[in-house]
Nucleic acid binder design. Sequence first.
DNA 1: CTCATTATGCTCAATAGGAGTATTTATTAT
DNA 2: ATAATAAATACTCCTATTGAGCATAATGAG
Lengths: 316, 316
Amino acid sequence: MHNGTDMTPPPGTSDAVAIELNAVLVALTANQPLVLTLEDGTLLPSGPFATEHPTLQSGVRAWVERQTHHPLGYVEQLYTFADRNRPASDGERRVVSISYLGLTRERLSAGARDPEWRSWYRYFPWEDWRAGPSPLVAQIILPRLAAWAAAAKDPGLRRERRQRIDIQFGDGVANWNEDLVLQRYELLYEAGLVAEATRTAADIVPGMPMRHDHRRILATGIARLRAKIKYRPVFFELMPPAFTLLQLQQAVEALAGRAMHKQNFRRLIDQQGLVEPTGASTSESRGRPAKLFRFRREVVQERAVSGTKLPLSRPL
Amino acid sequence: MHNGTDMTPPPGTSDAVAIELNAVLVALTANQPLVLTLEDGTLLPSGPFATEHPTLQSGVRAWVERQTHHPLGYVEQLYTFADRNRPASDGERRVVSISYLGLTRERLSAGARDPEWRSWYRYFPWEDWRAGPSPLVAQIILPRLAAWAAAAKDPGLRRERRQRIDIQFGDGVANWNEDLVLQRYELLYEAGLVAEATRTAADIVPGMPMRHDHRRILATGIARLRAKIKYRPVFFELMPPAFTLLQLQQAVEALAGRAMHKQNFRRLIDQQGLVEPTGASTSESRGRPAKLFRFRREVVQERAVSGTKLPLSRPL
DNA sequence: CTCATTATGCTCAATAGGAGTATTTATTAT
DNA sequence: ATAATAAATACTCCTATTGAGCATAATGAG
């Protein structure tokens, strides 16, 4: 039934493909999660993979750092896509695109029109629940999704659609799981409610589209980052050397897209010993001056492996 | 400083590469976590990516199912490697290997010598802590790692090595984090303690090596699966249609490589409503017959998105 | 000086999680 | 039969974690 080489076909039968790298580069300014875009916000930075780099990771890092003139604090592979609906631009070769998530502390020239940092909530406005449940969900998205579900002829399919909607979007008020960025985007895509999925502008939900599958890649990056901050202290890559606890909290809130209980946030942070006071304090805001903190290298490094906690569990 | 096309180099400059797929296929029998291997256990199944498949995922699925004649319950992309130290076998083209994790309920012909299912603990014996702390760690690995750390001339490097060892291996008794499979393998590799990393058989630690970087890919798969079972009920893909709670627990223990408290395991499982009694019971073992359970489809599906819990938190 | 505003300390109740004891129901040995 | 043993299953306890809110402290604005 099986011979020895059954599962290892002879080499060389694989077609040649071109490798393209995509990057979701994230920074944080003024409580907005920013992502680096090109071409008036319609593309993520991307480019061919040059063979001179020993590894993919180092290729991405070098390529980004050459362009942004800033060090990339953290790089993580996101996903490899090879969907056939995007033909290679050089004619025959199929494109395999490998995407990366990168975190950086600095941003490049702010006003620039082409490499431009934009809040990711321009692409996913429904993902911002920092000021409470996003009205977009209850008022626009859920009704249209409900219509889409109802449009299914088969009762089983109808039920399945309703269940997926419920799991991924909740009821518009409670049961919001901020990690499901990608699933939600894909559901909207499937329902024809995003620009990339349809030619009729009729039922499209707010949120700026991107070319190719770049918005999907962005969704993948956001989802990964949101999931990650709950157990790895990656957010420190995005912070300045010294910061107040409120700034730290707001940074996390910007990423997670939801507000957190202030006192409990502080409790958790210093329980874990992630930060230490610098001694200085700041009074840039109106009220009582806040102490400044810095990350404790050793602990952050250790937690990078063994895990952290954030008060981001409860469904609402 | 930046012009419009700065970050999108012209297409076509990317070199042609060959895509290779690797699969970590996992099954579970007699409380052993099994992985499908070839060539006397020295290789993972791998093959070229054929262009006729619309997506990578469907390519993997089709390819595996054609070979094993069994459905693949769950497929997940693991990682994409493009390290230059592995030249393409067809001459010039560089190989990019995309690896996948697949879970399956059935195993194919048991006695076969070539596509053969082997316990993954043959490759990573130190990862099995089901019967308590693995003596391998305390008696063989830690002393050798300590020697490696001590061998560093630079005191800073020495300290860093010691810290990494401590975080990843603990003290041999406590502080074992079962998720760090990949990091541990990479540390051993760096220290020259695995066969793949050295030509001298002197200090090598027990555990069967594989060719190329396949053992590393396997480590990636195990690590991913161990991390995943803590918050996604993927283990149900590995179970038969009906099972006892003890069997379920032992399945999870086999994957996680550590024992769990029986009563608490049951409490957690039925708190979450993941399973329901079939009505039947079995008395294959000696004691009181156990009720048989099955997974509840709806709940498993929902949890697949929203998360599960397992009593696998404490460091020892 | 009073108020608005933010920082920070502390309490409380509910829950989750780790560990152990007790009881029930079978099989196996005597 | 009866005793010994092995599992399954039911409860109890204790502690740590977590969500929520109140209270107090320190500042600038008017």
